[in-house]
Amino acid sequence: MESNRTESRENRYLNPYLGGVLLGLVVIAAFYTSGRGPGATGALKGLIVTGVEAVVPEAAASSGFVAEYREPLPGHPLRSWLVFQMMGLITGGFLSGAFAGRLKFRIEHNYRITSERRLLMALGGGILFGFGSQLGRGCTSGAALSGMSVLSLGGFITMVSIFGTAFALAWFFRKNWI
């Protein structure tokens, strides 16, 4: 009985339309205060730039990738809006999970595949997503959601491209999910 109750509590999520309105308000708050929308990969790029500058400063100085990140951000590479926002994102996710009783170390996957396969797919997916987010100048948050909110043409194109490709490839990856 007790386990049933925990299970249902664990699966209780916010109404998706309410969640969407709240997420939209987050986007508005970001633009209203900072003039920029939220994003997720910018902070990771900042960490990588910090690492490269610390370990191989000569390579950093000649890198077009580092120069592009540095141009609007001449101070410390981690003194960035996106880095602070990302620390908040992790905090907020943790708090929400804690209140909902969802804090637990586990590998979530379909019963038809092994944990090892799930982790391998997650690693591969992460590599592709990380690479694509740099090529596309932002991910689902920074390019698609923030971009669409300010009617950026590129934001709409990237959104259609991300979801279109995932739908097109869904059949090939179906065993991992259904």
Binding site: M121, G125, L128, G132, G136, T140, T158, A166, L169, N176
Partner: peptide
């Protein structure tokens, strides 16, 4: 970039 991200999405299950 969107195509590469879309492939990453269906493979990894996250953005």
């Amino acid at each position: 970039g969107g195509v590469v991200m879309g492939a990453g999405f269906i493979m990894g299950g996250f953005c």
